[in-house]
């Protein structure tokens, strides 16, 4: 599938109708979502025939993109019931088969590394401090192959240090810098749209196959 085609399919998905501020529910736009998955597939081979997990799936854009690019199984996780309903409607609309789990990523316990690749747009941690790092920590435990994630550019040094030193990543690379439009969903945003710089990261976990995590 071509990048343009992927982007256009993702553009038809429904987005949050009543976003919850405390959960940082803003959609990963089709532009960013399509590039993230397209790069993962075409530059690194981390999507087709793999088990891909979408952490904090929200509207389900990243998981849907993975399924469209040929992931063998897609698992999508969110803490919020309405997000999961929305994401499953979106999956149905595109006739995609996605496995949903309701959980708090911060305290999920997993056995082993069944998942190959994690893709995520975690909450940036502006409402609940450190939740972005919780997501990254868990993602690096469960993925056997790679983790793709978006983090604010202003946190770049911190993210790199935490990934390599504390979360057992063997590599941490910024693939590109993107502009993320956080629409004026929230009253405390004064401007119509807040444009923040985010990094698209690729992390490679160290192997720890078979261990109970």
């Amino acid at each position: 599938m071509k990048l343009k085609q992927l982007e256009s399919l993702l553009g038809d998905l429904q987005q949050f109708s009543n976003p919850k501020v405390e959960l940082e529910q803003y959609p990963t736009g089709p532009h960013i979502a399509s590039r993230l998955l397209y790069t993962a597939e075409n530059s690194f081979g981390d999507v087709s025939n793999k088990v891909v997990a979408d952490f904090g799936c929200g509207c389900g854009t990243l998981g849907a993109a993975a399924a469209l690019l040929g992931a063998e199984q897609v698992l999508a996780f969110d803490i919020d019931t309405e997000s999961l309903e929305l994401a499953s409607e979106n999956a149905e609309e595109l006739e995609l088969d996605i496995n949903f789990v309701q959980c708090d990523i911060s305290n999920l316990v997993w056995r082993g590394q069944i998942v190959d690749t994690v893709v995520m747009n975690p909450p940036f941690g502006t409402r609940k401090k450190g939740v972005d790092m919780d997501f990254l920590c868990v993602a690096l435990k469960v993925a056997s192959q790679a983790v793709y994630s978006l983090h604010k550019t202003s946190t770049r040094d911190h993210v790199r240090r935490a990934a390599l030193r504390d979360f057992n990543a063997s590599s941490a690379e910024v693939l590109c810098e993107l502009q993320f439009d956080v629409p004026q969903l929230y009253k405390f945003h004064k401007k119509k749209e807040v444009n923040i710089a985010v990094d698209l990261w690729r992390f490679v976990p160290k192997r720890n196959q078979g261990k109970v995590l």
Binding site: V101, N107, V109, I114, V115
Partner: peptide, 13 residues
């Protein structure tokens, strides 16, 4: 829920 998912989840209490 597929058994693939079951094989991966653990009680987290």
């Amino acid at each position: 829920m597929r058994l693939l998912t079951h094989n991966m989840l653990s009680s987290n209490i």
